[in-house]
């Protein structure tokens, strides 16, 4: 079938290019898995964690992952004297539910969290969550830079450099952290800004339904926020399967 597709694609330069790109991406992904799996220690540690995973709807993290996720979430949305942060809301439960319900996220989080600790241990000999806040921030900024570097395809030479970087990071295992970091930022942001605690800080009197806004020229009545909201549904068994 693939051969037939290739033959059809080869007749059209545009589709041939598309086909080549897709094939190259699939090949790179496969190579990445091989390189990541080349470390017996990594494979063993992931297997150990998988054996410890909690059973039940919406549960997936092991204790040390929960601790690390909480630490990372507090970097992403830090609290201050004037404003709440991830530490002030229930952050783990909704994130865990999200991960438990998504096979792609389970792979991303499983390997990525492992990589965060591996980087910390490699550079400082300790788990990420035990590092001083300044060092955690520095490592996270490093991931931002690495992410930018591997996304730079602005020229052929940059594209080749990006490819080589990806392979190197795959081999060292840190690519999993590079991949997880933007997803984690997005997931934590989602959880924080859909929590009434952040709404009160911002001055938002939602959700929009069922009351709407009888007076569109009024300014926010922050007292209404939490009372009227319907809670998200509880996870069901199928979701966490």
């Amino acid at each position: 079938m693939a051969q037939l597709t290739f033959l059809r694609a080869a007749k059209n330069p545009r589709t041939a290019a598309l086909f080549a790109k897709e094939t190259a991406k699939a090949g790179l992904d496969r190579l990445g898995v091989i390189l990541w799996s080349s470390s017996q220690a990594r494979r063993g540690e992931l297997a150990r964690r998988d054996r410890l995973r909690a059973a039940g709807p919406g549960r997936w993290f092991i204790d040390e992952e929960r601790r690390l996720v909480r630490t990372l979430a507090e970097l992403i949305v830090p609290a201050s004297d004037e404003s709440p942060g991830a530490q002030d809301i229930e952050i783990i439960e909704p994130l865990e539910k999200l991960v438990a319900g998504s096979p792609q996220r389970r792979v991303l989080y499983g390997r990525g969290l492992l990589a965060f600790d591996a980087i910390a241990r490699h550079e400082h000999g300790t788990a990420f969550a035990d590092l001083p806040k300044e060092e955690q921030t520095r490592l996270a900024r490093d991931l931002d830079r690495r992410r930018e570097a591997v996304r730079d395809r602005s020229s052929v030479s940059n594209g080749v450099r990006s490819l080589l970087r990806i392979l190197r990071y795959q081999k060292s295992g840190e690519y999993a952290a590079v991949e997880l970091w933007p997803t984690l930022i997005s997931d934590v942001t989602d959880v924080f800004y859909t929590n009434p605690m952040s709404w009160m800080w911002l001055g938002y009197d939602g959700p929009p339904m069922p009351r709407g806004y009888p007076d569109v020229t009024a300014l926010t009545d922050t007292q209404r926020a939490p009372q009227d909201a319907a809670a998200p549904p509880k996870p069901d068994v199928a979701e966490s399967a």
């Binding site: 970097l75 921030t137 930022i185 942001t189 938002y204 929009p208």
Partner: peptide
């Protein structure tokens, strides 16, 4: 709404919160 506004800015940390 809050999340839509937060998503308008890239980044994370105290700077992102301040911008939001």
């Amino acid at each position: 709404w809050p999340l839509s506004v937060a998503r308008r800015s890239a980044g994370w940390g105290a700077e992102h919160k301040a911008r939001t």
